[in-house]
Design a binder for these strands. Structure first.
Lengths: 146, 146
DNA sequence: TTTTTTATTGCAACTAAATTGCAATAATGG
DNA sequence: CCATTATTGCAATTTAGTTGCAATAAAAAA
């Protein structure tokens, strides 16, 4: 499993330890690269699994570290718990930054290249720095439309 | 004050009562149309004011109603409380949908026309419905860059 | 203007999401 | 294999927001 190696490599590079908890969270995220999961959902997956273990608090702490390392992206969907998704690509499924998310079936669809790149370039020219952004498009997908 | 009349008019139209609480929240939002405020900040402003009064819970309930009526927009800034901002224009300051927000000084800058319109049109053609979106750009503004 | 109706409020209690402090534990370098 | 120290697990806490319900006040009716 090439992606788990990537997680290990980056942890090592930053002199962070490769622990049960971190491997557990990483493998759940890798197994579900199409759907953004809440910390609780990740925790539930780990509990249901026989060979993974991680405390709920450590799920939060691990996700926060993975986010700092750029390994996962954090999504804020209106009034819900934050959701996390792996942000490194494998050859079959390239990494997308923005998604549409169906309110009903939770289906997630990549929105293609980032539409904000031009806007950010413009701001950087004006002296803005450390730019981050988050785009959220929600609604009903064709299958859920009555 | 023309904008407060707009609030009253729309409340009346929906057969909602014009109350102290709603007028208080509305006037704070009108006085601060350039900065998105959290419910708590709005509550603090009201408490500091001599002639306004509203319970903290009613601030939440009022903001939720105003959002349903399209009078305010809700912003989710990474890991913080939600922020609300008036979403009706007056002649001097036209209404913008998306903003840059400085992490340090909380300065807010409109980002011009919505860059997502094209994307949403494309999705609607494919059968997606009830589309909503939220864009958040954060960083350091030129004045806060060392 | 007064009375009646009922939407709205204020309070307290509650829930959900996430964070923190700290002693116990386990991963890594030597 | 041991020593060091990052990380964990647990309980307690914080923060943001919600809910139930009796009291209140806005608006309609008389």
């Amino acid at each position: 499993m090439k992606e788990l190696e990537k997680f290990k490599e980056i942890l090592k590079f930053h002199r962070l330890r490769i622990t049960q908890s971190r491997l557990a969270v990483a493998s759940i995220l890798i197994q579900n690269r199409e759907t953004p999961f809440t910390p609780e959902e990740i925790f539930d997956c780990i509990q249901r699994s026989d060979d993974l273990y991680c405390d709920q608090v450590s799920v939060y702490r691990t996700l926060s570290i993975f986010e700092d390392l750029g390994l996962v992206s954090k999504f804020l969907f209106h009034g819900q718990a934050a959701r996390y998704m792996i942000s490194i690509s494998n050859k079959n499924t390239p990494y997308h930054k923005h998604y549409f998310k169906c309110d009903q079936c939770h289906w997630v669809e990549p929105l293609g290249d980032c539409i904000l790149l031009k806007t950010e370039k413009r701001l950087e020219k004006k002296g803005y720095r450390n730019l981050h952004h988050h785009i959220e498009v929600t609604g009903l997908c064709p299958r859920c439309t009555t």
